[in-house]
Design a binder for these strands. Structure first.
Length: 256
DNA sequence: ATGGTAGCCTTGCTA
């Protein structure tokens, strides 16, 4: 079973890339982020015609997450629990292909410090709390998405230049470690120890050409699924295409 | 010291 996460930076703009990649990479379940459209504007017909099931939590202009699966999907939650006031479309939790699967878009948090950074840290705290609930329920789950967190300096092209940024600040990394230390496995890192392998390259300043990237897209596995991890990688192909997303897919394969 | 790019629509905001 092949799982993936990809921040597409507008699903309407990226639909040809998405369809081509789904066809070539043959994943079973994919988490998408930054749809940048309302649920009703999701290009549902095109994806369903290609044989995909969908769960979509959209929002006008910003955010928006989805799960695309070869298997039927049961939607379990369309928001991260813990704050009824939070209306940003950043979380969808489903059951598909025999696992619990989450597509999440963790807040960027810049500029930091500030209101946006406070929101980010609160969101991370809520994610930790909800993960405890998932662990207690003993369901096999995957938390897939754009975390907007570089776990260590090995995940940043220029650590010194980025140390004040919301993606690498100590409070960000502290909460990310707290999440991981609940018992989750970073599916990419555990099998790929080489430093400076990235999933995002800014559009500006020739970042892609210079490999000035960040590793911020992660597949975090529940303890029971970590035992089934067979392979993982970052597929740099889509980032090098025409009019690409600024992120590229991260994937893993589970036995069975 | 600044601006560089992309996508949305709000010709500014978010990233």
């Amino acid at each position: 079973m092949k799982l993936a996460t990809w921040n597409v930076n507008s699903v309407r703009k990226r639909l040809p890339h998405l369809l081509a990649w789904l066809d070539a990479a043959t994943p079973d379940v994919v988490a998408l982020q930054e749809l940048k459209c309302e649920t009703a504007a999701m290009p549902r017909a095109e994806l369903e015609a290609a044989g995909w099931h969908l769960a979509v939590v959209g929002q006008k202009s910003y955010n928006g997450v989805a799960v695309v699966s070869r298997h039927p999907i049961q939607v379990l939650s369309e928001a991260l629990p813990g704050d009824p006031e939070d209306t940003q479309a950043r979380y969808v939790e489903v059951e598909t292909g025999g696992i619990r699967f989450v597509s999440l878009y963790l807040p960027n948090g810049n500029p930091a410090p500030g209101d946006k950074y406070t929101y980010k840290l609160g969101w991370m705290r809520r994610l930790i709390d909800h993960t405890r609930t998932l662990l207690a329920a003993e369901v096999p789950f995957v938390l897939a998405g754009d975390y907007n967190v570089c776990p260590t300096d090995d995940d940043v092209y220029d650590p010194a230049g980025w140390q004040e940024d919301a993606l690498v600040r100590p409070d960000t990394r502290r909460l990310y470690r707290e999440l991981i230390y609940l018992g989750l496995t970073d599916a990419y890192r555990v099998l790929n120890p080489e430093p400076h392998r990235y999933s995002f390259w800014d559009y500006q300043k020739g970042a892609w050409q210079k490999d000035h990237g960040l590793r911020i897209d992660h597949l975090l596995l529940a303890p029971t699924l970590a035992d089934r991890l067979a392979a993982s990688g970052i597929d740099r192909g889509p980032r090098g295409g025409e009019e690409p997303s600024d992120h590229t897919p991260v994937w893993c394969r589970l036995t069975q």
